[in-house]
């Protein structure tokens, strides 16, 4: 850094500016469009031309958008809590207890998280009809477990492996059972990891599209991605771009805020799930 000539310093910062511009511009443009109505929306412009909340009002009043947001929050929330609950004990066993077949088991779990969703679609559809939960939130809670559970187990296992062994030894010497070790000793140390893993799994469930599209039929049962994907006007020529952008902004802003708050933890969680293995 210190030996860099002024020319290269300028080039470097130009590159940085370009990266930021490309990353941020599409969302900025969506926000700008969401405030425009009438003819203003159809004239492409880089700077804001007008400010109106009409699109937001029409999204909030119209159809079942708020209901969809509620569905998404409920489904993603329940799925993640259940997955975390099952994953904490499972990952303790996988990270801390040596038993035969552990490697194979972890490999299988990893493989499940990389499943193409389409490969289980018809089988899941049959199962969901069998349980009588088609077109209900339960169908999605059940099907989302297929990716949230392996993911949370995998990431929590890598986190749990890194906890110092001395703490556990001390607890064992004091006569603690594995259950006590998890709930009393590890949980207080693990909660940042739980928050991170839970948040990532929540984002995954919040964004899921294929299952939500297949396993719901009525508008009131839709989740947000399906609602936005199927938001359309009277004809192909009349795609309501303003309301679509407003809806997009509404569901994206909370995610962006969460991601920015938990920035560092998310990066740690992602790398635990991806690179570290």
């Amino acid at each position: 850094m210190s030996r860099r000539t002024p020319f290269w310093t300028v080039m470097f910062y130009l590159g940085v500016a370009l990266i930021v511009l490309i990353a941020v511009f599409p969302f900025y443009y969506a926000v700008m469009t969401s405030f425009e109505t009438g003819t203003a929306i159809f004239s492409p412009n880089i700077l804001p031309e007008m400010f109106s909340l009409d699109n937001y009002a029409s999204v909030m009043n119209g159809r079942n958008f708020i209901r969809s947001v509620g569905n998404s929050v409920l489904i993603a929330g329940v799925t993640v809590v259940c997955a975390l609950f099952l994953a904490v004990t499972a990952s303790y066993a996988l990270a801390r207890v040596r038993f035969r077949g552990r490697g194979l088991l972890l490999m299988t779990i990893l493989a499940v998280s990389m499943f193409p969703q389409i490969a289980v679609l018809s089988g899941l559809y049959e199962l969901i009809k069998l349980f009588g939960i088609y077109n209900t939130p339960f169908a999605l809670m059940l099907s989302y477990t297929i990716f949230t559970l392996p993911f949370t187990v995998w990431v929590l296992t890598t986190f749990m492996r890194d906890l110092p062994v001395e703490i556990e030894e001390a607890a064992i010497v004091d006569g603690a059972t594995p259950w006590i070790i998890i709930t009393q000793v590890f949980m207080p140390l693990l909660w940042p990891a739980l928050v991170t893993t839970g948040l990532l799994a929540f984002i995954g469930a919040w964004n899921e599209f294929l299952f939500a599209l297949t396993f719901t039929i009525s508008e009131t049962e839709r989740t947000v991605p399906v609602a936005i994907a199927l938001l359309s006007g009277a004809s192909v020529q009349e795609i309501p771009w303003g309301p679509i952008m407003a809806a997009s902004v509404i569901v994206t802003v909370p995610l962006i805020i969460l991601v920015l708050i938990f920035q560092r933890k998310i990066v740690a969680g992602l790398t635990a799930g991806g690179v570290k293995g």
Binding site: I19, A30, I228, V251, T252, V259
Partner: peptide
């Protein structure tokens, strides 16, 4: 650069 990642795929497709 975390922003594009945080935006749901469906939303980015529409944007």
């Amino acid at each position: 650069i975390l922003i594009p990642w945080a935006i749901p795929t469906i939303v980015s497709a529409r944007m």
